[in-house]
Amino acid sequence: MAYENILTESNNGIATITVNRPTKLNALNKQTIQELHDAFEALAADAQIRAIILTGSGEKAFVAGADIAEFASFSVQEGAQLAAQGQELLFDFVQNLRTPVIAAVNGFALGGGLELAMSCHFRVASDNAKMGLPEVSLGVIPGYGGTQRLPQLVGKGRAMEMIMTAGMVSAEDAKNYGLVNHVVPQAELLDFCNGIAQKILRNSPTAISQAIKAVNANFEDGVNGYQTEIKSFGKCFGTEDFKEGTTAFLEKRKPEFKGN
């Protein structure tokens, strides 16, 4: 599929999606959100793809926010609809994707850009990255899940401070806060993320998808995460991957998982 605002490539089971609007610092507009959804959906349906890396083009920005010009004149109803549609189409979609998604944060991740990174399953940052939710400086609040995911990752107090000051944090501070898992030199970022993805590829795709579901359940209102874990654990026993994994262990060989 041809895209205007993103690039996709795949190699040996690992796909990379690059937001490619360098003149706009890779800012998210409606078209880019739709293209990202379409790309994630297509990759999730491809059994050959076992991990996805999301990054931004160039050396300045991962995604430097939303395209403000698109919604500056919106009404109350239009603003609420914008947030609802965006969360469903992209941010919640990525969070609940059964294929692991790693955010390779290669520069500014602000507003919707940080919200997109937070919707990924985990994050790795380049040492020049800056992260923040500056929406209150525009008279609005984060609308793509930022007020929910940021406290889950860094705690309520730090999230309140970041949101209310509209300030940015460095990559090292983000690591110390638990917002990113690793910080590496920018030139090494994609190779580092590919290294993590290679480790993921050694393991059972079906088990990983159930693990994502179980972990996410802990953060859903009205859902008992422990019960979700029990059900997901049980489902693993009906998979070919479970038979292969246990057989390989008993035979003292490396498993060859097929994802079924």
Score class of each variant (00 low, 15 high):
Glu256Trp: 07
Leu90Gln: 02
Arg123Asp: 06
Asn181Trp: 11
Ile53Glu: 00
Gly112Ser: 04
Thr147Cys: 03
Ile14Lys: 00
His37Asn: 13
Cys236Ala: 02
Ser232Arg: 07
Asp221Glu: 11
Gly195Trp: 13
Pro22Arg: 01
Gly178Ala: 10
Met1Ile: 15
Ala109Glu: 05
Glu244Gly: 00
Ala117Lys: 04
Val94Thr: 05
Asp92Arg: 06
Ser73Trp: 02
Glu115Phe: 04
Ala45Val: 12
Gly139Val: 09
Met164Cys: 04
Thr206Ser: 13
Gln152Asp: 05
Ala217Ser: 06
Asn203Pro: 06
Asn181Phe: 11
Gly178Thr: 14
Lys231Ala: 09
Glu9Asn: 10
Leu133Thr: 14
Pro205Trp: 01
Val180Ser: 04
Ala47Pro: 01
Thr247Ile: 14
Gln87Asp: 10
Asn106Val: 12
Ala2Ser: 14
Glu35Phe: 06
Met131Ser: 01
Val223Pro: 15
Ala66Lys: 09
Thr247Cys: 07
Lys24Gln: 12
Gly107Ile: 01
Glu35Gln: 06
Val136Met: 04
Gly155Asp: 10
Ser232Cys: 14
Thr228Val: 15
Ser232Leu: 07
Leu133Ile: 15
Lys254Pro: 06
Asn260Tyr: 10
Glu35Asn: 03
Ala2Thr: 15
Ala187Val: 12
Ala47Leu: 11
Asn218Pro: 11
Glu78Gln: 08
Gly107Pro: 02
His182Trp: 05
Asn29Leu: 12
Phe249Trp: 07
Leu36Cys: 03
Glu229Val: 13
Val101Leu: 08
Lys258Thr: 15
Phe91Asp: 03
Gly145Ala: 10
Lys252Ser: 13
Ala197Ile: 02
Gly65Leu: 07
Gly234Val: 14
Lys199Cys: 10
Thr228Cys: 12
Thr239Asp: 06
Leu189Gly: 02
Lys175Ser: 02
